[in-house]
Design a protein around this nucleic acid. Structure first.
Length: 723
DNA sequence: CCGAGGGTCCTTTTT
DNA sequence: GGACCCTCGG
């Protein structure tokens, strides 16, 4: 078994565990994916189970693909019959196979989040719900959140009228989806769970089949996913879960770390195996990560170590402004690049997407290639969704979402009033829009004919030609070709994307046995694709800390380490919110192999106005001996204009003045107080001056305190000391 | 019916 | 700063 060689004792113990349920606590960079894939290879090659008896679950398609790739490299045998995929992908597969039992049409369509939101808005209009009082986004979260807890509308506890109303909308929404033959993401899981729970023969069939169930990133499972796993595992199957409680960063969307403890109870896990040897980072980086995460309560407990050397200290940089911070990062990245580190081996991380703009700006000015992760994905683009809506409609005319999206796009003179009339008629007759549209004359009739013509003309065509046909005959092609002026460039790109859609279909047909339209549409919904194509180009990576999970880089720039930004001030409200932020910081630190920069700015332009923040408390939690301050250490910070920074860093450069308003000069001439200055107050603690009013004797300052919030203080009375 | 322009809001995100 | 939603005038 040569794939066992090279494993450390813990990894080997995990891989070769007898047929029993297990929890593997796998730290960052400890070879988690390797253990999972080797476990599968070991189970199969020792003849303990055939590929047919294995179910492997991941969260992302990327992870599933990666595992399948590594597995086929290890096992030259046929692994068909092995079920590997995301929770949603696997549930979809089961629901398609048993659509009748699940009470779904065979060609049910999947709503992505945007579709779901549109669907909810449409419903709320029909129900006459005030969208000021009930923001559709919130209703969406309410519905998905409950479904992910395994709850249907009638099971939700509602003690107040407000919640009761939301429950009503929830119920009506589910009815609407059922009527239209569509299923949202959480519905895929819940419907599948209910199917297995209700249907004993089916449940027993799958239980008898999947003797080994393996789960990746187990800390990210929500209640429903765990219940689903439990149902499939039954009394006798082995659940092999791999996860890291310290990297649980998705509680805000329903992930329940508590599932890890529950698993050990429910499945009588004898021993939890910890993988603590890290193969990624130098010692100082791991020491910093360990020191930080120690501040979290209720951990399962784990300490990363490495046989590598300590490496260099972490580099800390304080910039006067976010622009200077960005400039510093770009300069350092260029320098490293000159020294031979590929740009693609470096990443700039930030807490929230809004922060990328300044960095992008600096990169563009410096002419450095970069690539932003996240953002709009291929199948989420407007033009692609339009094209897909035509496809959905020719296959399932009852899909009201799809019909509404394209009935007047490209514009064909069917306005809001006409559409409202259609909707009213449909509601009155309790039928879908398509059926009403068929009975209507005028421009609507022309549209109906168009769709019917497209349906019959494409019935016998291969998938790529179907798409080609609808792009042409829907008028999408001409519409974008006719765009002029400022929109022309954008339209050009949209046309290229539509062309790319045909390519995607061609590829899909080659790669999949089931090359039906339904299958392609499912693929589009479940695998929305990479946000940008050129993955191999040597470019600096820009992404949120969230999207960096699972990745690693030679050098990481963790930017915007400011109190209020990271940890984000909204996290204060959430239960154990700061702990989750700390785990996020832990993830960020552990992305770095060799070099880690920690940067922050005294002032930052956010949402169109300048903010002054203190250094992040996370930075203080790192042991001083691991840090190398490039700028003077913050605790000894003085009025920075006299602290001997190089001239490029002085805060009085013209760029910085914008947005400060006229207030900065007031009282600034002869007084020791100025905006962005760190101060200490006897009662409120540490803060930073964000505004100054009045002068001399009656001067008042506004201070943003670390813990006490923002306050106006009269200097005459308040005991403020400069830091 | 349609596009231009004003007001509002603003963590994190995969499926 | 900018995406998104709504209103208003042509």
């Amino acid at each position: 078994m040569d794939f066992l060689s090279g494993l450390n004792p813990e990894q080997r113990a995990a891989v070769t565990l007898p047929e029993q349920s297990a929890l593997i606590l796998a730290g960052a960079g400890s070879g988690k994916t390797r253990v999972l894939t080797t476990r599968i290879a070991w189970l199969i090659s020792t003849g303990q189970v055939s590929p047919h008896g294995i179910l492997a679950v991941t969260f992302t398609n990327k992870a599933a693909k990666e595992m399948l790739l590594r597995l086929s490299a290890m096992l030259p045998i046929n692994i068909r019959g092995l079920w590997m995929g995301t929770f949603h992908g696997l549930c979809n597969r089961m629901l398609r196979a048993h659509h009748r039992e699940a009470m779904l049409p065979q060609t049910f369509q999947i709503l992505d989040s945007a579709d779901q939101l549109a669907s909810i808005k449409r419903l709320m209009k029909v129900l006459n719900v005030d969208d000021e009082k009930y923001p559709p986004r919130e209703v969406q979260n309410f519905i998905s959140g409950n479904k992910e807890q395994g709850l249907r509308a009638h099971e939700v506890e509602a003690f107040d009228p407000y919640t009761r109303r939301k429950v009503e909308i929830f119920a009506a929404y589910d009815e609407q989806c059922q009527r239209e033959g569509v299923v949202d993401f959480s519905e895929l899981l819940l419907r599948c769970y209910e199917l297995l729970a209700r249907n004993q023969p089916l449940r027993e069939h799958y239980q008898a089949r999947f003797r080994h169930i393996l789960v990746d990133e187990f800390q990210d499972t929500n209640r429903l996913q765990y219940q689903w796993l439990k149902l499939l595992a039954g009394q006798h199957n082995a659940l092999f879960a791999v996860g890291d409680d310290d990297q649980s960063i998705y509680a805000f969307r329903g992930a329940n770390v508590g599932n890890m403890q529950e698993l050990t109870r429910d499945f009588h896990v004898q021993s939890v195996i910890k993988l603590e040897q890290n193969y990624r980072s130098h010692g100082n980086i791991l020491d910093a990560a360990n020191a930080l995460i120690k501040n979290n309560r209720s951990r399962l407990g784990k300490n990363l170590w490495t046989s590598e050397n300590k490496g260099e200290p972490l580099r800390v940089y304080e910039a006067p402004t976010d622009e200077e911070e960005a400039k510093f990062i770009v300069d350092e990245a260029r320098q490293l690049n000159r020294e031979g580190i590929h740009l693609a081996e470096m990443a700039v991380l930030y807490r929230s997407n809004a922060q990328s703009r300044v960095i992008e700006h600096a990169l563009v000015s410096a002419g450095v290639a970069y690539r932003v992760y996240g953002g709009l994905r291929f199948f989420e683009r407007q033009e692609i969704k339009h094209a897909l809506a035509y496809l959905r409609l020719i296959q399932n005319p009852g899909d009201d979402n799809a019909l509404l999206r394209i009935i007047n796009f490209p514009t064909r003179g069917i306005g809001t009033r006409t559409i409202e009339q259609l909707q009213e008629a449909a509601r009155a007759q309790n039928v879908n829009l398509w059926q009403v549209a068929k009975q209507t004359g005028g421009k609507v009739a022309t549209f109906v004919t168009l769709i019917e013509m497209m349906a019959s003309a494409t019935r016998e065509l291969p998938l790529p030609e179907v798409i080609d046909h609808i792009i042409l005959h829907s008028g999408l092609l001409v519409h974008y070709q006719n765009e002029t002026g400022v929109k022309q460039r954008e339209a050009q790109e949209r046309l290229e994307n539509l062309n790319e859609l045909i390519n995607a279909a061609t590829l899909f047909v080659h790669e999949n046995e089931d090359d039906s339209l339904t299958s392609f549409l499912t693929h589009a919904a479940l695998e929305s694709g990479e946000s940008q194509a050129e993955a191999n180009a040597d470019a600096l990576h820009l992404m949120t800390v969230h999207s960096s999970k699972g990745l690693e880089f030679h050098t990481v720039f963790m930017s915007g380490l400011e109190e209020g930004l990271f940890p984000h001030h909204n996290s204060r409200m959430a239960d154990a919110g700061v702990d989750e932020e700390r785990r996020l910081m832990y993830v960020a630190i552990t992305r770095a192999r060799r070099r880690l920069y920690l940067t922050f700015a005294q002032s930052r332009m956010l949402h169109g106005q300048v903010n002054y923040n203190l250094m992040s408390s996370f930075l203080r939690e790192l042991p001083e001996e691991l840090l190398h301050w490039i700028t003077p250490r913050i605790t000894t910070r003085n009025n920075f204009s006299s602290s001997g920074y190089s001239s490029s860093l002085t805060p009085t450069s013209p760029m910085n003045m914008k947005g400060l308003g006229g207030k900065k000069s007031i009282g600034a001439q002869n007084s020791p107080w100025h905006i962005s200055q760190a101060v200490h107050h006897a009662k409120f603690g540490e803060g930073v001056i964000v505004n100054i009013e009045g002068g001399d004797s009656d001067m008042r300052v506004q201070v943003n305190f670390r813990t006490a919030g923002t306050k106006w203080l009269a200097l005459e009375y308040a005991k403020l000391t400069p830091l």
